[in-house]
Amino acid sequence: MSTYTIENQWVLVQVDEQAAEIHHFQSKENGLEYMWQGNPKYWSGRNPTLFPMVGKSKSGYLTIKGKPYQMGNHGFTRNSLFHCIHHDENTIAMVLEDSEDTLKQYPYHFRLVIDYILVAKKLVIHYSIENKNEEVMPFHFGLHPAFNCPLEKGKHQQDYHIELAQEELVNGVLTSKIDLDPVELRKTIILEKPSSRWSKLSDGKHFVKVFHDGYPWLAYWSPEAPFVCIEPWYSHTDFTENHLDYEEREGCIKIEPKGVWQCSYSIEID
């Protein structure tokens, strides 16, 4: 496995071939590390790509093409080894293709490419999923980036808040600011059909701003740990018991044979 670096005068970013996760997003101006580094005491993940499932089914099984399949929480991409297909001073491109192991969990041939593009203090992450089958390919998709919070020693998580681009209905209240209540974050705060183009995690001095325009669901989560996740989803985990087939679940995306589906989001720091 290898780790690849892109950088400019403001920031340094490192992406690892394991799960194509961002291992570092550091500011050269203030020396801060903005990405959660992973710690099994709380959560060993960092910023996994959720494909071909967001969350998991209540039963632990998914019915695909009439057959039961067992897939881990958030799909297999988070545990898969990618390969770098392009690397220059501003861009890293990683690819994952179906394998004998993935076909045991998900009976489709696919090609997933993730491009990391550094523009000043913003990292643009672009996803391209190709259907390599002679039939329609259904899948579920989401993102799970985790950010250090607090960012600085001497600070506490409660010193931070999440600012929204505009007012949203959060736990029944219309607001443009979410306080970091540890109980609510552990349960996961979920926004459905948000209008906001971005969410900003900030203490008023430093911030992480996630641009997520067009995603049907947003989740904010922290298991009473020194990080906060801002998660744009195209589909979602089972909120209640659900016996629908995989391709009929809410948020399922379907690509025509030999077609390509694309999306993106971005992270800005200061």
Rank of each mutant, 00 (worst) to 15 (best):
Y220K: 03
I269Q: 06
V15S: 10
D238H: 10
K104P: 00
I6W: 04
W43I: 04
K177S: 14
Y234I: 01
Q37L: 13
G75L: 13
P48E: 09
S99G: 13
V260R: 09
G72S: 13
A165P: 01
V173N: 10
P232D: 07
P138R: 12
G31N: 13
F110T: 07
F207A: 14
S196E: 09
H156C: 05
I129R: 07
E184F: 08
H109I: 00
P68Y: 07
Q105L: 13
F147W: 04
S199G: 14
E268C: 04
Y246S: 06
L62T: 01
N79C: 08
K153Q: 14
P52D: 03
K153M: 10
F207H: 15
K28R: 15
N30S: 13
N148M: 09
Y42T: 03
N47Y: 04
K155H: 14
I129Q: 09
E256T: 12
K122V: 01
I85Y: 03
L50M: 14
Y220R: 02
L180V: 06
Q14H: 03
L169T: 14
M94C: 08
S99I: 02
I255R: 08
P216V: 06
N8V: 10
K254T: 10
S202M: 07
H24I: 01
H212L: 02
I6V: 15
W221N: 11
D238W: 11
V11I: 11
W221Q: 09
E21Q: 15
S222H: 07
K28T: 06
H83D: 08
E168R: 11
W36P: 11
P216H: 08
E248S: 12
V228P: 06
K56F: 01
P150M: 13
K155R: 10
S196A: 15
I64T: 05
S57E: 06
N90T: 13
I117Q: 15
S176K: 14
C149M: 07
M137I: 03
G75F: 12
E224W: 02
D213L: 06
I190Y: 09
K153C: 06
L191P: 05
K254V: 09
T91C: 14
K193F: 05
C229D: 08
